[in-house]
Write a protein that binds this DNA or RNA. Structure first.
Lengths: 199, 199, 199, 199
DNA sequence: CATGAATGAGTTTTCATTCAT
DNA sequence: CATGAATGAAAACTCATTCAT
């Protein structure tokens, strides 16, 4: 009955299972036994592929970072980049949504000692940096309203992304995801950009 | 060496310690042993004051609810109520900040099972409801820009509050808390309200 | 709300509660907390009246001994004494039945170390001695059948008493207790005594 | 130092140790730690082989049932079957004696709740049923004295078996086990069967 | 006499991890 | 590569018992 797979394949399966469990069932079920069950292998096998549980978490972080970077690697008009950033938070398919919610799970990270919290904070900061640079560029290009305070706007934008994610998680989006994406971004956009630009 | 205190006092101490630990060190350290150490008593004593760990969590939830409700019980101009709501997320003193971050810890499940996440989600929803009603009232009074989409704005406002909280948590506020409060609220406000109202 | 009673009264209440609990709910519930609850006092109060749990057990043993001795203190015709001995096992009212079943709860006693088992065994032996002496006397008086082996008969009689007790406990007496007493003793009696004596 | 054995072997060892401990040292010592020590493994290993303590108890019950059923599965002359039933109570080797004494330990409740006592009572009843059917058959065949009351005799026989067991346990058999078996059964037999049959 | 507070020593279990197969 | 067996360490309770009030 034993199915043998290459290490790479197994590592991916295990990391996926870990993400799924943390996302859906919470940290308390992030255990070797649960992950193994999800993958369909035995606990001991996990440690054949990962040194220890921390290595799994670290791998999950790497994955999170990839996902986030993809959303931030877009190019083009700064406002379009912002748009893509905000929408990526909602657009994400299940596993991506799960992984993104890790951004606000400072809890996981504590298993790693102080390094964990630092790493999630760093990831959040990369988001802020990205937003800040988009906004700066937009401001320089005269796209934003003059009275906009960049730092305040950074919080506004990143926060809106968070608000999105949690509203979706809580299942309280008052319309279809697509529809809400549009309305929400519209609100955010019209809040920041020059009137005439909107036309 | 044994210091004897009244049950009420101890219960408060224990709940405070629990909040502090969850906030600062994560759910993984939310254990009887850690809490006891924080309070300066022995593990067994905890169970003299609380039936089990769940009772502690429930108590913490009650406390969270109180804090949130206080922030939402304000009256007056809808915009002022919104302002107080947003600012309360940052203004909070250490223990309140710690407790508020629980709002985004869906992990608190423990033996509460699905009850835990459901309860946090419910608390988040109360926040959304509060914001929505403020916005509606403001809209009716003609205080908001006409093109504002209420549902989008709800996400904007609640999200901004989250953005605030996490920025503060991550220690990346680019100015003093007071200063940032002001700038951030200003941005949010000017994003939503009628131009002429601003003058 | 605190009701104060004399030590003697409380000791009796506590011992009664202990017997009741062991009899009805088993050793696993023979704890200070359960006993206290049964009596309607707090745990700590128990240790105001008894040095420790062992003292309670010892007291219970004393009580058991009293009950047993009463059944063995009867006088008269040896066969009548035997009859009373056997019947006492069934006749006992609730509390006595409960206490008698302790005779076969070697389990309690282990809390006392080796002394416990020795004590119950001793109590059982007193029963055997009593039966043996009755039988000897009956034999000397020519009341028993000649082929009766006294030692075998001792086991027969004491065993029947046990059989009685457990049948009653299991609620499988096929007739009223009184009726069964009679039939059972009749059987035992006719098994041991001379034919002509029966007439 | 670690000795590795197959699960089946370990399960047997653990169950045996459990029986031995309950039999010799009482329920109070029926703990994972004690059992593990007896087997020569660590506590945690027990839970590798048994889900929880209840599973151990249930296994012990199964074992008890097997032993009892073996003693009741004999065939042949009803009186011979009765003889084997009674003697099995004494003949048993250490572990069997230990297990049989569980029959009179209503204490085994643990988390089994009411289930435990009910199960022991059921086992006792099976014994009674067996004896009753032997006696009925013997009566129909005209082997018993006419004045024998079957229900009374059931108690007599099952009781004698109990008497046997406890006398052996208490170490007060006045002769060798074999010798006492013979004498005791003789007494019981002559008490029940027709005179002429004895010849 | 009665009790609330406190605790040391268990007790059952869970979990990550190691190792032999 | 995969897994069953084994375990140390921790976690959540429980319990008898002590002490101050």
């Amino acid at each position: 009955m034993t199915i043998r797979k290459s290490t790479e394949e197994r590592r991916r399966e295990i990391a996926d299972a870990a993400i799924k469990i943390i996302g859906e069932r919470g940290l308390r079920e992030f255990t070797a036994a649960h992950i193994a069950q999800e993958v369909g292998i035995k606990d001991a096998t996990i440690f054949h592929h990962f040194k220890d549980m921390n290595e799994i978490i670290l791998t999950v972080f790497d994955r999170l970072q990839e996902v986030l970077e993809a959303a931030q690697r877009s190019n083009g008009d700064p406002l379009e980049r912002l748009e893509r950033f905000v929408l990526s938070r909602l657009h994400a398919v299940t596993i991506q949504r799960g992984i993104q919610s890790l951004l606000f799970s400072d809890q996981i990270t504590h298993a790693l000692g102080t390094e964990g919290p630092r790493r999630v904070a760093a990831l959040r900061n990369r988001g802020r940096d990205f937003v800040r640079s988009c906004l700066r560029e937009a401001a320089e290009k005269g796209l934003l309203r003059e009275d906009i305070d960049i730092e305040g706007a950074v919080i506004l934008v990143t926060g809106t992304a968070m608000g999105f994610l949690f509203a979706a998680k809580d299942g309280v989006l008052p319309a279809s995801a697509d529809e809400m994406e549009r309305r929400c971004w519209q609100t955010l956009r019209s809040a920041l950009v020059r009137r005439q630009v909107l036309s």
